[in-house]
Design a protein around this nucleic acid. Sequence first.
DNA 1: TAAACCAGTTTGTACCGCAAACCAGTATGC
DNA 2: GCATACTGGTTTGCGGTACAAACTGGTTTA
Lengths: 97, 97
Amino acid sequence: MTDLDRVIHEPARLLIVALLAGVKEADFLWLLRESGLTKGNLSSHLGKLEEAGYVEIEKTFRGKIPLTMARLTRPGSKAFKEYKQRMNGLLAKSGGS
Amino acid sequence: MTDLDRVIHEPARLLIVALLAGVKEADFLWLLRESGLTKGNLSSHLGKLEEAGYVEIEKTFRGKIPLTMARLTRPGSKAFKEYKQRMNGLLAKSGGS
DNA sequence: TAAACCAGTTTGTACCGCAAACCAGTATGC
DNA sequence: GCATACTGGTTTGCGGTACAAACTGGTTTA
């Protein structure tokens, strides 16, 4: 109907995806600071995005301390791109400005 | 955080608001056909939008048959405009195209 | 040894969108 | 003139989900 991808549409995830699209790779704490989300929400939203196949999560260690990296997958980039197109289409149809 | 107006953000309502922004006034059945929503959903989303003060609902009669007209209020137009700006900002920050 | 901390995950709840059931009134078939 | 179908909606029930708060497993500090 509007055909907006609900996984991406959710504001918190839209923000995460937009951030990732900019940098191509980011760790949990950077996303945490940049997004302003709580840890819990960031964690679960990343979980949803991973489940959807839109991001890859890689868990490593920085010394003794766990480190989680996230990056957009190819399908993720594609989905985001399509989302942007549809959204622009919607916003445009209401008459400019 | 993303500061997206949740009332407008919901796809069905975004569509309704975009449609109304284009025409300035519309009746229930036109919105029904144009949006592809079910009657139930259209009714309740219009209710939400009215409750938020974003649309005015006017109930009249066309002959013997009830007719509901909807139009965007001033605050509604303003909210939609701001929504568009924020959304464009979000989509832009990920690097163009 | 314990207390504080880091980097997250799991859990609980309250809300919300959706579809289906419902309703009042009007035209139509018998 | 009675019932059946249709218009133009509204209300209800249910399933999914976002958010915050509590929890966990390991690590440094006191």
